[in-house]
Design a binder for these strands. Structure first.
Lengths: 203, 203, 203, 203
DNA sequence: TATGAATGAGCGTTCATTCAT
DNA sequence: CATGAATGAACGCTCATTCAT
């Protein structure tokens, strides 16, 4: 089973799976539905993905790579840490909101399912957190930020971003609050809590 | 279909559904499994809940009420807003981590599914946010906090808490970060960002 | 799942399974085919047998009991061991030839499949061999037979009978040899080899 | 479709089919598994065998030839008929136990399947019985054996041997009876029943 | 000689639901 | 209030086979 969707059909399968994931949720994603949607027999999918797990893992792979790419694109080493972070935060949220299917299988899917996902790739997904932590660290070095645990702060940022993404995607947020407002606020909220010279509660 | 589980069987059904939700996840919850577990026929469940949706909605109702009760219990009007908030935050996270089955159907379930949940009850779930917003407002009045949009801040707090709960429950957080640390940090993180006299970025 | 096919449908299922077993062989026996043949939905079978294993095991149970009954019926304690044995041999072969479906799942089915069959019931099937061994023993006591290992002789008899049954059922025996001849010869063949000081009985 | 596996691939296909037959049983033998195992595409097998039947028939052919060869090798015309027979019996049982995959498709497979096996080849399989019958005949001529139907006796011997092989292979024989004991006993059992004026050989 | 792409049929099984009693 | 009997639809998956290249 090639993992590089060059065959055209592989691309079609993944894209259709993604769409179904978005419109119906993981629980309702089925091989047969994908097949039907693309006008192929269900058997054909198995020519490209050995089973449902493999297909979903291929999607996760793509998602992980895609998010990483977008974070890298957002990261500009020549800028101040504050700008670095706020760009990355925006990129993260943007990814979550524009690619909700990827986001769901990457970060929301039931953990029981993830145990079948190769650990090595799991680690790959952690690079993103490390990028954030390192931006925080350089902010600390340059004296703008203040924390003795950048990795914890990165996780704190992550939980905040994740909460925004998932609550917006799952349509739990009151529509009267514009999502742009929430997004902007969450970014500055995170950064503010990193700044030095605050009447600081200990982290 | 009565919605008040006064009949013993209704109670039994809901409790069993909850347990199954916890042990097997939403995707694997089935009427027949519930029936089998309680020693009744599957048909019997339909005497009390017209279909699976109704049953799950009843569970969501319970979850919403339960969370509200626990937030109310945590709220102590005689305390400072800071303490009020941090108690409520802890209560929220605690609910999410100890009642993951409720939490999942309340806040994680695919929105396509939620559209069948009566909107009126949806609003009920908003009471909790209002409690937080009001605690923030009183902090503003007393001069401790500074914000011109308490409801937005409440939502920001919520996204943070939600992120912590879901990432912990879905086991995405690096095990090397103790969950207690993350929880404590997230609470103080939120409160800190509300405090006056910071080198404040505008919200 | 009741094991006593009193429900009518259960009887129908077992009988249809048996017929399919006979006409198409175990490999081609399917739940769906059974269902279709009896004019019920496949699901209905699962109301009576939890899965295919359970169904086949129920058939094996029936076969084991049936064969045992027929051997018991053939066994007449008041007769000479020679007659006892030849009656039992005939009964065994008769069972094998008239109930080939039972016989196949009891004694031909791939062993991998049998490992799922409860050991306790396995033992039940061994009673038959013990009946034969005990008839041989009493022949030894009465001085007609001569052997110091009745159980081995019983097994030898069994392999002979089994060979006759299976080669006839699987249609491997040259049609020019009448099965009655083969059957009669095999019985006397076994008994002859047990006799003391025998002079040759005619073949 | 050539039937002589001179092409290396044909040899490879047959050998792999045999191995799969042995490790997984007939029911689980599949064209795609064979193909995968030999590193060729499934389609390639069809270049050499028109369909699964043809492939299995080729295997049966091989088995028939192989068994015949081994019986011929065991047969030593210069020996006494008793030795001739007991060597052939051992060879037969040995073939059955060491080549269960051949044996199963040759002699156990459901007859419905065999109807598609060319009758002409069926006859080929009968040579073996004729060898046994002829050894019996020469024993009769030399005055050691006594029977007026050597072919019937050969068939009786065959059923006995077949019973031993199949019950051992299908693991139905009580493990407390060593297979060597059963095998030796069955051979002498058959021969004894052929002897003229015999006095009991010890079991 | 070899293959990649494709498929229709079939498998065992689970599910939510209905209906007569 | 409770059930047994029943079902159509769906699921993930495997299979032998075909066909164009």
């Amino acid at each position: 089973m090639s993992r590089n969707p060059d065959s055209g059909l592989q691309r079609l399968i993944l894209d259709t799976a993604r769409k179904l994931l978005f419109t119906e949720g993981y629980a309702r994603l089925s091989m047969r539905k994908i097949a039907q949607r693309i006008g192929y027999s269900a058997t054909s999918i198995y020519l490209h993905y050995g089973n449902k797990d493999e297909l979903v893992h291929a999607l996760i792979d793509e998602g992980v790579d895609l998010l990483h790419e977008e974070l890298c694109a957002a990261y500009d080493g020549s800028q101040e840490p504050i700008e670095q972070l706020s760009e990355m935060f925006l990129a993260y949220i943007n990814f979550g909101l524009t690619r909700p299917e990827y986001y769901e299988i990457m970060y929301v899917l039931h953990p029981e399912y993830m145990t079948r996902y190769p650990a090595e790739k799991y680690r790959k997904a952690r690079r993103n957190l490390e990028m954030i932590a390192s931006a925080i660290s350089s902010g600390v070095k340059s004296g703008q930020f203040e924390t003795h645990d950048p990795m914890l702060c990165a996780n704190l940022a992550w939980t905040q971003l994740h909460g925004v993404v998932t609550l917006l995607n799952s349509e739990r947020v009151d529509k009267r609050i514009p999502s742009e407002t929430l997004i902007a606020a969450s970014g500055s909220h995170i950064i503010r809590s990193l700044l030095k010279n605050q009447t600081q509660v200990e982290v």
